[in-house]
Nucleic acid binder design. Structure first.
Lengths: 216, 216
DNA sequence: ACCTGAACACCGTTCAAGT
DNA sequence: ACCTGAACACCGTTCAAGT
């Protein structure tokens, strides 16, 4: 007994939780690009290498931050209608992820499914089968919804960064369009950015679900 | 006259085209992560800084590479039926981009629309209006299709990189699922990866288009 | 005008040494 | 056991100088 007394060596000054907490703050304050091992170490008053005692590498640190998302995951009340259940679940999944500013960095790759989204996947797959789909249909439906959702999140997240005057670039393109070659876009002209800025995630989602599982 | 004779200074050894060509080769051979200013310079037998005479920065270099994609853009024959036209156009857009291995790097942000995808946008917007949609409906339809397409491209592109034994991670998660909490996924078990690997892009796209513009 | 060389301000990570 | 310090092998980019 007394496993405590058998501990040997220098007592730890840093902990994994402490590191993750500092990483969270850093990302919240300055964006994911500010999360470097060196900067995080400085923030903790330690050497960069001290972090490697507690975390395998930068990749693992990001995945640990993703676990926070799982903790604050929205789990909506589920309606009886299976199509509506798919919509409500996908919207919750979308909204959960939309709150993560560094989502793009981590969405590339299907780690999300593995770490936090299992409940969403389960619920959508179940609803798809309740619509009369086979297992294969249900997985395909979930993936379609996931593609649509991931695309929306990524495009919107990156569109928000103006990247130093590059927003004008798109507007410029729309301003001097060849009306003969591209009549529809030319007619839209300056109204395009406004229309593109509308939040139509749920509308499109409903269309997708309706198309995947037509009613009668 | 003789503007040529009035030229002054050292004759150029590098050209913009030459730099872009070397960048293209580098990316094709070793992936976009190998495209660094220093490595590209070495490849050209020059100093890193020589490149900055011809290219503003690394970002611009990537956008110049994107112009290549526009040049090899697939423009399919368009069927009369507007819904089918949307599907055929989106599939062409998808296939064009699927050939670009570094697509993820550049898809984040709507530069693609601005640089190369105008024809696709025009065609889809036009088809959407031929289905009886307003301009706003048409832009919303295009964006929904674009979200779905971008998501598919990004998820599939990143799923292909195993990232050193992280593929086993997802399989492991699926292996020891809690069958009480997640019965559908647990029942799927090992069959999930196989089902997720199926190419259902066009199927999902057809569902989306059918949902966006229901026939009568 | 075009290119070089040295320098600045960074990265992630390994390895040997200290406490 | 935990942390430090120095080092390795990189980045993109600026600036002053050479031809």
């Amino acid at each position: 007994m007394g496993r405590v007394s058998t501990r040997t060596g220098r007592p730890p000054r840093l902990s994994r939780d402490q590191i993750v907490a500092a990483a969270r703050e850093l990302v919240a304050a300055h964006g994911v690009e500010a999360l470097t091992m060196r900067r995080l170490a400085t923030e903790l008053g330690a050497t960069p290498m001290a972090l490697y005692r507690h975390v395998r590498d930068r990749e693992e640190l990001l995945l640990l931050l993703l676990d926070d998302v799982a903790a604050t995951m929205l789990r909506p009340d589920l309606p009886d209608d299976p199509r509506e259940r798919m919509v409500v679940t996908a919207v919750a999944m979308h909204d959960t992820l939309a709150r993560v500013p560094w989502i793009v960095e981590v969405l590339t790759g299907d780690e999300f499914l593995a770490r936090s989204a299992l409940w969403y996947a389960e619920t959508i797959v179940d609803a798809a089968m309740a619509c009369g789909g086979t297992e294969a249909d249900a997985v395909y439906a979930y993936r379609s919804i996931w593609y649509y959702t991931a695309g929306e999140l990524i495009i919107r997240a990156t569109a928000r960064r103006p990247a130093d005057g590059r927003t004008t670039f798109r507007e410029k393109v729309f301003a001097d369009l060849d009306a003969e070659e591209l009549p529809r876009l030319a007619a839209l002209g300056e109204r395009y950015p406004g229309l593109a800025a509308l939040d139509t995630y749920e509308c499109g989602l409903r269309a997708l679900v309706a198309g995947l599982f037509p009613t009668s």
